[in-house]
Computed example of a mutant assay.
Amino acid sequence: MSIHLLGGGWAEDESRWTGRFVDEARERAGGPPTIAVVLWAADEAEGASWHDDYRTDLQQLGAGEVRIVQLTAERTLLPTDLGGADGIFVGGGLTPGYHAAVMPAADTIRGLVSTGVPYAGFSAGSMIAGDVALLGGWRIGDVPVCPQSSAEGLDDVTLDAGLGLIDLVVDVHAAQHGTLSRAVAIVHAGLAERVVAIDECTSLIIGDGGLEVAGDGSVWTADRDGERVSVGVLAG
């Protein structure tokens, strides 16, 4: 089973970048899988406005029960929320909010993934998946490194402990929101050795076979290369 990191974005047909996650959950379940969808919002009413979209999209891809777990600042993720899940899908929104609410169950998520439960992160869910999570921010040392609109409410680029599912720092909405420059700047500043930035409607799949890209866009890589930063691209 794999880790599926989605760069965000919506489209009519999401099978190319989300379908494999559901297929792996179905394989584990031996039939229509139960997917735990973990969402965060400032309040439950705001979160509820997204429930039908996530449920419909996943069921169209072959999911059985789609169990929505709505988190807020006051309601963090509990280990029991994930009981019986054949797949874990952590959605998108404000990354610092997701980080604070999901990390209390990090050990449970790692344990389930280690037993073969596939994990999918959508935008924020991808950014918190690594050993080190990228929470947001648009400046490093008072130097702008990406559009302020991608700052997630933070000024300085902020990294923190993540879920520990992969050894990559992950950025998202790369081509669409101009975050590749933030990925490069993080490596250049010595904050990480490698960062991947994923386009919308694109997934980076990490499994036993290594890295694979699916979907419409690209995954951009920024790696330390001596005193420089080497930038590469993995096409879907």
Rank of each mutant, 00 (worst) to 15 (best):
D208R: 14
V184D: 06
G226E: 09
D223K: 12
E193D: 15
R224I: 06
T221C: 04
L204R: 08
G215W: 06
S203T: 13
D208H: 14
A214H: 10
V233I: 13
C201Y: 12
G232D: 07
R228I: 03
I205C: 03
V196W: 00
E193M: 11
A189F: 14
T221A: 02
G207A: 02
G217K: 06
R224C: 12
V219P: 03
T202M: 08
V196S: 00
G226Q: 02
A192S: 12
W220S: 09
E212H: 13
V233G: 02
V184N: 02
E193V: 08
D225G: 06
I206F: 00
A192V: 10
I206V: 15
V184E: 13
G210F: 07
V195P: 10
L234E: 00
G209V: 08
A185M: 12
A222P: 07
R224L: 11
D225T: 00
C201V: 10
L191Y: 11
I186K: 05
I198G: 06
A189H: 14
A214R: 15
E193L: 05
D223P: 07
G207S: 12
A197P: 11
C201R: 15
R224N: 09
L204D: 03
I186M: 14
L234N: 01
I186S: 09
A192D: 13
G209C: 09
V219W: 04
V229C: 13
L234P: 03
T202N: 01
G232F: 14
A189L: 05
D223Q: 13
D208Q: 15
L204F: 05
A189T: 11
V195I: 13
I198T: 07
S218M: 12
G209T: 12
L204M: 10
D199G: 08
G232R: 12
L191G: 06
L234Q: 07
I206Q: 03
G226D: 03
L204G: 06
G217Q: 01
V233S: 00
I205L: 13
T202D: 04
S203K: 04
G210A: 04
D199A: 04
A192E: 08
E227S: 12
V196M: 04
D216E: 15
V195L: 12
L204K: 05
I205A: 03
T202L: 08
G226V: 13
V219A: 02
E200P: 10
V195S: 08
S218V: 09
E200Q: 15
T202F: 06
V231T: 15
I206K: 06
A192H: 11
L234S: 06
V229N: 07
V231P: 10
T221D: 07
W220F: 15
H188P: 00
R194D: 04
S230E: 12
W220G: 04
E193A: 15
I206T: 02
W220E: 00
G215A: 06
R224H: 13
L204S: 10
